[in-house]
Amino acid sequence: MNWDWSVVEDFMPSFWDGVLVTLQALALGSLIAFALGLVWAMAQRSHRKWISWPVTAVTEFIRNTPLLVQLFFLFYVVPTFGPSMSPLVTGVIGLGLHYSTYTAEVYRAGIDGVPVGQWEAATALSLPRRRTWTSVILPQAIRRVIPALGNYVVAMLKDSPMIAVIGAFEMLGEARAFSNLTFTFEAYTVVGIAFILIAYPASLLLRALERRLAQ
């Protein structure tokens, strides 16, 4: 093995650029996933079949097809009839949309986990439907799903390199460009280790958070 630290040093400036883009994509993707997931979860619970059925079908379809292919679809097919977007924007939308189908299941589980007594109490107090959701059910449901949502953020972090394939320069994109230019391997290794160094403490943090919320 012929590891060369000077190559690592040369790679560092573009590495930090990549980290920044990865974190941007992650933050925006999470926002979309959290918001859209709640919308899917509520729509799936709807008593109106014409809302719940198509939403269930679409989310199941998105959940059971690869993110990579969805990114290609958003990047190459959507512009033929809709807006064309930059690789990063496409990536953020792709990540957010894909993971929203996972967070939807988490919200569903959280809402199912709220004891029936809470619903009955809201009915007994004759709270309006909207009030029941916003001040009784959702605060309790969301509190118990925060760790699971956090875990999907870490999962999203590990899927974020896929947006390099459509040309966004996040960590992997930078490493690939650098390695192709210099015929070296250190950049890939640095990025691989960087993922572990971000994901592991993040998971530890989530476990601590989970213990705190469980009390």
Binding site: D112, N151, Y152, V154, A155, S203
Partner: peptide, 21 residues
Amino acid sequence: LLALKLSPEGEMRQAKTGTAG
């Protein structure tokens, strides 16, 4: 419709398998 819907605990556990530290 397709995937198995998990119980609330099952869903939390599944979210964790990929990432829990």
